[in-house]
Design a protein around this nucleic acid. Structure first.
Length: 830
RNA sequence: GCCGGAGUGGCGGAAUAGGUAGACGCAAGGGACUUAAAAUCCCUCGGACGAUUUCGUCCGUGCCGGUUCAAUUCCGGCCUCCGGCACCA
């Protein structure tokens, strides 16, 4: 690092400039948006950050500074922009850090927030700090709780039994990500699965709308695809089998009703509620044993597709409604209780999983679908899963699969044994956590009245500031240790009652923060409805792609619910979404453990914050990320120094020409005129589409040309000064401190961000003389600088006169000429 | 296994309604300025071969084919890397 320092030129006085303009912006409250002015409003949002100890590197700068450039340009284009910032300060990372270090999350969060704030201020981001919020602030989570109660009132927040990961050694529930290879990440004890009563938001009620909404928003296609896959809509048939002795109905879901005649057994998931009643006394101990074994398996092991299939027979049979067949009922863990009905009809001839199972347990493999279109099947080797023609299927034989599925389902419907059905992969959102650092769920358990919501006027239910925030030994939330917190009176009957001690998932906090930004101090509700009406939804949302199906799905769900509930006027919160890529260093992912973290402070001290921020833009395209190189940043430092020097040199003349208008300039140097207008076009378009790297390159080309003009042409040229002035405007959103300084040096009044964004002159881009290329058989043989409208004939003649071209034609016959106006002439010879 | 994204000089990366591959920058080499260094400025910079004053020929965008006057770009088949999903019936 110190070596690099010696290599760098004495640079423009960035320290003085940076602090001068930062002070100016603060003194004039320049970045505070007047939200009462909503004409041409533009709500530009970056996903707020998680102030845990591990993430204090260049990622923040990258996430915020580049969108800030985009937004600054929009401001110059006349938009009234709003760019807020806050902290997702509740949640696991902060709490785990606290458990590790013993420092209370309240303390570590405050420290980290200060650091992030300082870092972003140094970047010169146009963030409206008057609207800052933190989700762990009682003034915020009061309303998270309030919103929970709305969900509760509408029956959209429910408490129900669900399978969870349980560590028998730590006596606690673990999150999925804390289970490593089926074991507890702390004590390495094997995890078992337990059914516990948990709080859920019924997001599955919105499956279809979450899917449909994707069609009307401007999001990256891959993100939409991920959400679609996650929601996993599947059309099929629900078929009801009947247990032969008890008459118990056993519904199963299938997408292949056409294979119903091929059913040779039925499989229930080990956790299926009917397992108990269908198991015969003879098979009881074997079944119980299997269920226990299955519960011991981790989610990962159980869902492993390479694992050999296992299962046991329950001893009972059910009846296939289509043909009255007697079908044995098995239990196997390859069937998931949480999908469909938790049971499947097994068709070994036409489903590979069933085939593997049937082969292992010697169950019948029936062929009911005949291949078509030259395909072949050999059921001794595996299942035939394609569509085909139904065979061995009574009156349905001869139908193709598609038709058969429809006809079979219709028949089932007519005999009351099935119907068309749509199933989703999406599951209800488990929001309760046995953790300390989150908003307490505002529910009181009363022995008489049951689950009673905390009355609105008693919100927030404050998170007690206990020092003992470690997880308890008995698997309950640490809050359960605080008697003062737990013991309360029932708001309904006044009797003795207990508070819910579990807290909410962090993703609940982040599902609505963008609504509160508009007025974080608002006291009459979670958000200010007047401002919300005018400023929402969010116009531009930028954040990492890793949030594709978590936060981005939950936030959409929240808005849909709140829209239905009458609290919001829209149901899609983020009209336009873009992701940033990840930064690597020397090709490797940046991580604390690798010790290759880029510390912004270090580089800001050396080169100034504009150089740092602009280098982040120059590294690569924003959506793909880029590779940080300690020496690469020197190129940007040189570039900004060169700009500073040329503006400084000409500042006197610039002042003189400050008010000149492009249209009024006479005797324009055509090359510079072209370059200037091309640059305006490129920079405008590239910033718009977040391709900052090529925008910077375009500015470098302009500057290189300006230096050439400056050297060659000492006489005063109005276009030259006009170009310098334009350069300042174009560079300002990328290098805001320097932009302000240069604007002032050129005689402009602050702020440069109140100036109009330059527009290019289309006619200047139509050149009189252009370069035309001559190809012979597709190979480049020469080029000419010719008049723009030159005809094919004259260009051909010109080419013939050139010896280095004509020599390739010698003795050959011209077969064809391909002329692309403005580009090339390709002469095909034989 | 399935679904996305990517593969271009020593390096980061440009350029695809098919039409001059390598913009811009870093590193490297040479030169100017300087007592010297830094900074600054100028030149060279994909490879091979042939000329020898800067020109010519051939090869070259992960690999193999195809379409075309022309392919980094389109089509088919592979390989590698990154991300996501993964027994979803």
């Amino acid at each position: 690092m110190s070596e690099t320092k010696q290599n760098i030129a004495p640079s423009y006085p960035f320290e003085r400039i940076d602090s001068k303009w930062r002070r100016y912006w603060e003194d004039t409250r320049f970045h505070e948006t007047d939200l009462s002015r909503y004409h041409n409003k533009l709500y530009s949002l970056v996903m707020f950050s998680y102030p845990s100890g591990d993430k204090l590197h260049v990622g923040h700068s990258y996430a915020f500074a580049l969108p800030d450039t985009w937004t600054r340009k929009k401001r110059m284009e006349g938009y009234n922009t709003f760019e807020p910032m806050g902290y997702d300060s509740f949640g696991l990372p902060a709490e785990n850090y606290a458990i590790k270090t013993g420092i209370h999350p309240r303390v570590s969060i405050a420290e980290n927030i200060q650091y992030i704030r300082k870092q972003l201020k140094e970047m010169g981001a146009m963030l409206d700090w008057s609207k800052e919020l933190a989700t762990s602030d009682p003034r915020y989570y009061k309303w998270t709780q309030w919103l929970f109660l709305k969900f509760f009132e509408e029956g959209m927040a429910v408490r129900k039994i669900a399978p969870v990961n349980w560590c028998p050694s730590c006596n606690t529930v673990l999150a999925n990500e804390q289970v490593v290879d089926g074991s507890c990440e702390r004590c390495e004890t094997e995890i078992i699965r337990k059914n516990l009563r948990q709080w859920f938001f019924r997001i599955t009620e919105y499956s279809d709308r979450l899917l449909e909404g994707l069609d009307k928003i401007d999001w990256p296609e891959r993100t939409k695809t991920m959400q679609r896959n996650w929601i996993g809509r599947s059309e099929g048939t629900e078929i009801v089998f009947t247990e032969e002795n008890t008459g118990e109905k056993i519904p199963v879901f299938t997408t292949r009703a056409d294979t119903l005649f091929g059913v040779s057994y039925l499989v229930l998931a080990p956790e299926h509620p009917l397992v108990e009643s269908v198991t015969t006394p003879d098979n009881r101990s074997e079944v119980d044993d299997y269920i226990y074994q299955a519960s011991k398996l981790s989610e990962i092991d159980r869902q492993s597709t390479v694992k050999e299939k296992t299962g046991v027979f329950t001893g009972s049979y059910c009846i296939n409604p289509i043909n009255g067949d007697r079908v044995p009922i098995w239990i196997a863990d390859y069937v998931l209780v949480s999908y469909g009905t938790g049971g499947v009809m097994a068709v070994p001839g036409h489903d590979q999983r069933d085939w593997e199972f049937a082969t292992k347990f010697n169950l019948e493999i029936r062929e009911v679908i005949k291949p078509t279109g030259g395909l072949k099947s050999d059921l001794n080797k595996g299942a035939f899963e394609n569509y085909g023609i139904m065979i061995n299927s009574a009156e349905f034989s001869g139908l193709n699969s598609k038709e058969g599925m429809k006809k079979v389902t219709e028949k089932l419907k007519s005999i009351n044994s099935g119907d068309f059905k749509i199933t989703f992969k999406l599951r209800d959102w488990l929001i309760s956590r046995q953790r300390y650092w989150g908003p307490p769920i505002p529910i009181i358990f009363c022995p008489k009245c049951g689950e009673v919501p905390v009355p609105e006027n008693e919100l927030p239910v404050l998170l007690p500031d206990i020092d003992d925030f470690m997880p308890t030994g008995d698997g309950r939330s640490p809050l359960a240790k605080s008697e003062e917190f737990v013991k309360t009176d029932c708001p309904k009957c006044g009797g003795k009652a207990e508070r819910e001690t579990e807290t909410m998932d962090t993703f609940v906090d982040s599902s609505w923060y963008f609504l509160r930004y508009l007025d974080p101090d608002y006291e009459k509700g979670p958000w200010n409805p007047e401002l919300a009406k005018k400023w929402l939804p969010v116009d531009m949302y930028i954040g990492g792609a890793e949030q594709a199906v978590m936060h981005l799905l939950y936030a959409r769900f929240f808005c849909m619910f709140l829209n239905d509930y009458g609290l919001l006027h829209f149901d899609e919160p983020f009209l336009k979404l873009r992701h940033q890529g990840t930064i690597t260093r020397a090709g490797a992912k940046i991580s604390k453990s690798k010790g290759n973290i880029v510390n912004p402070d270090e580089f800001i001290e050396l080169y100034g914050s504009d150089t740092f921020r602009m280098y982040l833009m120059f590294m690569g395209s924003y959506s793909l990320g880029g590779d940080w190189d300690d020496t690469g940043i020197i190129g940007i430092a040189r570039f900004l120094n060169r700009i500073y020097r040329i503006i400084e040199k000409h500042s006197k003349s610039l002042k003189k020409y400050m008010s000149s208008k492009y249209a009024g300039i006479e005797n324009k140097n055509p090359d510079l005129d072209y370059r200037l207008n091309l640059t305006i076009k490129r920079v405008s378009e590239d910033i718009e589409s977040l391709e900052f790297n090529t925008a910077v390159a375009a500015l470098m080309e302009l500057l290189n040309d300006l230096y050439k003009v400056d050297e060659q042409n000492a006489m005063e040229s109005e276009l030259f000064y006009y170009s310098l002035k334009t350069l300042i405007l174009l560079i300002a959103p990328m290098a805001p401190h320097l932009g302000e300084e240069l604007w002032e040096m050129a005689g402009g009044n602050p702020s440069v961000f109140n100036q109009k964004w330059p527009e290019y002159d289309r006619s200047a881009l139509d050149l009189d003389k252009i370069t035309m290329v001559i190809q012979i058989n597709g190979k480049l043989r020469g080029s000419f600088n010719v008049a723009a409208g030159m005809s094919e004939e004259s260009l051909f003649e010109l080419a013939l006169k050139e010896e280095k071209i004509s020599k390739h034609l010698g003795g050959k016959k011209v077969v064809k000429k391909i002329f692309v106006p403005g580009k090339l002439l390709n002469i095909v010879v034989k």
